[in-house]
Amino acid sequence: MEMPIAAQPRAEQPRRLASFFGSAWRFRAFYVMLLPGLIYYVLFKYLPMYGVIIAFKDFNMSSGILHSAWAHPWNKHFLTFLHSPYFSQLLTNTVLISVYKLLFGMVPPIAMALLLNECRVKWFRSLIQTLTYMPHFLSWVIIYGILLALLSQSSGLVNQWIKDIGGETIPFLTSTSYFRSILVSSEIWQNLGWGAIIYLAAIAGIDPTLYEAARADGAGRLRMIWHVTLPGIRTVIIMLFILNLGHLLDAGFEQIYIMYNIQVYPVADILDTWVFRTGLQQLNFSLASAVGLFKAAIGLVLVLGSNRIARIWGEGIW
């Protein structure tokens, strides 16, 4: 496919426009197919964004978004957030939990996809695949129930075993030293199979002639994984990583809200749980959206920044 526009850097404005409409007309079927998606995003993602102005207002429910008074000073709600005694703790927790999830959560689905791909017994492969992506459909309440049954200090199975062999019980769910590990590992467990799907799809897209060529050159299975499969899905890995970076300040509200308790707040309380308690439950909607905007801004910077870095290696998304 040739790209005529890119070839002429300083084309005149009208001609450029004309050629855009020209090509748009030529590919009209594609544009029509694109339309529903565009409308969806405009309607449900862009239009509601005008609501962020309440971050700069003293939102009053009976006056509504447009008629509430402007906050004075304009950054009042941002300051409340920055000056909260828990600000640094919240930020640290959010970033740490997120980074742990990102780092430790990246390799297992890839490994899973590779293993599934190499498995030649079809029924076994589908069985494992189904079993591993089932947890994705469990809500956190249920997963917490399972964790409680296993790890509870007073009635959990694991601690019962420890007690039976005469050991000291371990406060997995109420101690600051275990809580983050439990968070991260339960998240990995939940998303292992689901995360593998996208990699499997990418692997399926690799040109089979590459494998044949490798085999002809005498490569074994491991060699083929290393030289064909992994490079073949490299783009997907990097793209997912960059997109996930944008969610760095979303450490998983639902999971933490269900699993935490006052004893682990120092390591578990994140921006979103704080916003829920302080913003939503106490009617400080302006504060809540100020924090939301803060998070979105940082997320945007991270996505743009990481893409730039990825581009240095020739792998950026755009």
Binding site: Y41, F44, K45, Y46, P48, M49, G51, V52, I54, A55, L243, G246, H247, L249, D250, D272, V275, G279, L280, F285, S286, A288, S289, A290, V291, G292, L293, K295, A296, G299, L300, V303
Partner: peptide, 12 residues
Amino acid sequence: PGLLAGCGSGGG
């Protein structure tokens, strides 16, 4: 955009 709007869920 999903990501942008999603982040601002508190207010949006």
